[in-house]
Computed example of a mutant assay.
Amino acid sequence: MRVTHSEVLIIGAGIAGLAAARRVHEADLTCRLLEKSRGLGGRCATRRFHNASFDHGAQFFTVRNPPLKALAESWLEQDSIREWCRGFPCAATGAGAGVDGYPRYCSSPGMNRLPKVLGSGLTIEKQVLVTSIERAADGWHVASSDERHWHSHALIVTAPLPQTLALLEPDVSRQVLTCFPALQEVDYDPCFTVMLALSGESGVPPPGAIREPNSAIDWIADNSMKHETGGPAALTVHTSAAFTRRHFDAPQEDVAAAVIEEVQPYLMADVAAWQVHRWRYAKPREPLSVGALALPGTHPLVLSGDYLNTPARLEGAFDSGISAATYILAQS
Rank of each mutant, 00 (worst) to 15 (best):
T93D: 11
D100W: 08
G208H: 07
A182K: 02
A92I: 06
L76S: 13
R245G: 09
L76E: 13
P251M: 10
S173K: 02
E73A: 15
A92Y: 06
D187N: 11
R64I: 08
F61R: 08
I220Y: 05
G96N: 12
F180R: 02
P170F: 10
G14H: 04
A242T: 02
M111E: 03
A182P: 00
A21D: 03
C31T: 06
W219N: 03
W279T: 01
S224L: 03
L314H: 05
A325V: 08
W140G: 01
A13P: 05
A166Y: 08
S74D: 15
E228P: 06
F318S: 02
L9F: 07
G208F: 00
I260Y: 01
F88Y: 14
A257E: 07
A137E: 15
F60V: 12
E261D: 10
G17K: 05
W279S: 06
D270K: 04
S323N: 01
S332C: 15
P207T: 10
F243P: 02
S240W: 10
P190A: 08
D254A: 14
E7F: 08
R148D: 06
P89Y: 08
P207H: 10
G297N: 12
L308C: 01
M268Q: 13
F192V: 04
R148G: 05
G139H: 14
V237I: 15
P89L: 08
Q252M: 12
P213G: 00
V194I: 14
Y281D: 12
H247L: 14
M225A: 13
R23G: 05
E261G: 03
I328R: 02
Q252K: 11
A256L: 03
R280N: 07
T239H: 01
H153P: 00
S132H: 10
L122Y: 13
L295G: 05
G96L: 13
L76Q: 13
L34A: 10
F61V: 08
V255L: 06
N65C: 10
L293D: 01
A21M: 04
T326I: 10
M1C: 09
L114R: 06
R280K: 11
L235V: 08
S37E: 12
G41S: 11
A95Y: 10
T164E: 06
S289E: 09
V276Q: 02
W219D: 04
L122S: 11
E73D: 15
L314T: 01
N112C: 13
I156A: 02
E73R: 15
R245K: 15
A19I: 06
T310M: 07
S132F: 03
T244Y: 05
T62G: 12
G230M: 04
A330F: 07
